[in-house]
């Protein structure tokens, strides 16, 4: 089948248009920008995720150590028995949530498009 010059241009433009739709509408934009630290369910601190720092937060049982680095956040240590929060590791998506329930300290990442509307424990 012979395609004219105009046909080739049309075909390439249409394929590019379709591809750009995938790129424009399907690209995941979920990088978090800020982290919200919630203590005892009432005290909230909002920190920039790109300001590297290590902080200890006093909860019900003792001090939880939280590290913020290059757009990610994690628990380094926590005075609880199970350490689920520490084992959850680095979090970097908007809507991510890590909680140390015994110590009543939790991290909530905000910014980007949330992957979940709500999480129920």
């Amino acid at each position: 089948m012979r395609l004219t010059w105009a046909d080739k241009v049309v075909l390439i433009l249409c394929v590019l248009l379709t591809a750009s739709l995938y790129w424009g509408l399907w690209r995941a934009d979920d990088e978090a920008r800020e982290v919200e630290i919630i203590v005892d369910g009432e005290k909230n601190y909002i920190l920039d995720l790109f300001e590297n720092k290590r902080l200890s937060v006093k909860g019900k049982l003792g001090e939880s150590v939280i590290e913020i680095k290059d757009g990610q956040a994690r628990f380094i240590s926590s005075p609880c028995n199970t350490s689920f929060c520490v084992r959850s590791g680095w979090q970097n998506h908007g809507g991510d949530f890590v909680a140390c329930l015994p110590n009543s300290v939790s991290l909530h990442l905000v910014g980007g498009s949330k992957l979940y509307d709500a999480i129920n424990f």
Partner: peptide
């Protein structure tokens, strides 16, 4: 170099 029936169908 006109648009052929092929291009017309796609457009």
């Amino acid at each position: 170099d006109k648009l052929s029936i092929f291009s017309l169908a796609i457009l």
